[in-house]
Amino acid sequence: MEKTKLIIDCDAGIDDAQAIMLAVSRPESEVLAITCVSGNTEVDYICRNVLRVLTVCDRLDIPVYKGCSKALVDHGKNAKFYHGKDGFGDITGLPEIDLNLLQKEHASCAINRIVGEHEGDVTLVAIGPLTNIAVAIRLNPNLGKQLKKCVIMGGNIEGQGNIEDGTAAEFNFHCDPEAAYMILHELSCPLTTFSWEAVLKNTYSWEWLKDILNIKTPKGVFHNSILRSSLDKHNEWKYPAYNFCDPTVVAIALQEAIVTKSRDVFATVELHGRLSRGQMICDNLNLRNEQPNVKIALEIDTDLMKKMFTSVFKAL
């Protein structure tokens, strides 16, 4: 089997951890590097969390790189209100890690170097704010030409936001709107986004998730500890179904057929609105007569997604 070469750029909170566990556990995946960016919490916590996940998965062979500690235009946005100060819900008993395992090279430089070494073969999986990738583009304007593709967790297509202050934007784009704007306009490889509305519409039953949480392998126990505490803390069990964010993006990167409905559009990012800064704007009627620059994934084969994700925790 020819493996899909991945670089994962993340702000490792709980859903990023799920995505990393999926990526490093699938037989069709070869994770070349994981790069860390501030977002859910500070980048130092992000690095620690990535190393924790790799420890549990016995994959400390994968190099981890520390990246940007602030957005291009910093306004102090984060998701500590949901993910906790440390990004994993501030729970105790998580694996101890050695930060000396971090690579010395900056994440943006590492992205450019690794993509250059595997030109045309690397899929960039972006599941946090896009700051590291924007800096990489400024250092290397040809990055998009060297990538195979980029799959992004981010943006919104109907104006539904998930920001604590009620702003009509998706979190990752809202954290660094300028970086998101750069990626949509300057990263010339094929782009696919999984929007916040798509997250809400592609759902999973609580019964299935509870079965996952009851798996007692080391990875299963770790996943249970970080996810269940969040669900309990925020009383999310009251909602009719569970939603996947970041793991779906990894699944799309590995198996494009998991996307059963999509739309190609020209999209940009609002940079100036008081209530809409960071919102992705899609020209659905092609009024600007621009070539599409992004594929919007709308519907997911949720049965395939469940099979892929369940396989992570069945293995020791």
Rank of each mutant, 00 (worst) to 15 (best):
F244V: 08
C150F: 06
H234V: 02
G13T: 02
D176V: 00
E178H: 07
Q279K: 14
E158S: 11
G84N: 07
P292T: 01
G39N: 03
G87T: 12
V135Y: 01
I281C: 10
I226P: 00
A253T: 00
T35R: 00
E186Y: 01
V125E: 05
E164R: 11
L99M: 14
I91D: 00
V199A: 10
L94H: 02
H75K: 13
I212G: 06
V115I: 14
V294T: 02
T203E: 12
R228T: 06
K66I: 02
S25F: 07
E207F: 08
H223K: 06
T268S: 09
F88N: 12
K80P: 11
L99I: 04
T310L: 08
T193K: 05
V37E: 13
C57N: 10
D165K: 04
L94Q: 04
N78D: 15
E158Y: 12
D301A: 05
I14A: 07
N284T: 13
I7G: 07
Y204E: 02
Y65M: 02
F173I: 01
N235V: 06
S225E: 14
L213F: 11
V151Q: 06
L6V: 02
E270P: 03
L32C: 00
V73I: 15
L187R: 07
V259I: 14
I226K: 00
K80Q: 15
E2H: 08
Y239R: 11
E186M: 09
G220E: 09
D264Q: 15
L124C: 06
H272L: 15
A110Y: 09
N243L: 06
D86M: 04
I8C: 04
I46K: 03
I226F: 00
S195E: 07
N172W: 04
G166Y: 09
T55F: 13
E119S: 13
E207N: 13
A267Y: 01
M182H: 05
N172A: 05
L191C: 08
L60P: 07
V294W: 00
K201L: 14
S69I: 05
H234E: 02
I111V: 13
C282P: 13
T123S: 12
L254F: 07
A136W: 00
L101A: 11
A169R: 01
L316H: 14
D90S: 15
S311Q: 03
K201I: 12
C57I: 06
C10G: 03
M308P: 05
C68E: 15
C175T: 05
A19E: 05
V265L: 09
A79N: 09
V259C: 10
D165S: 07
T55S: 14
E186R: 09
P218Q: 10
N142V: 11
S195P: 12
S38Y: 08
V73L: 14
I111P: 13
V37T: 12
N142G: 04
K85N: 15
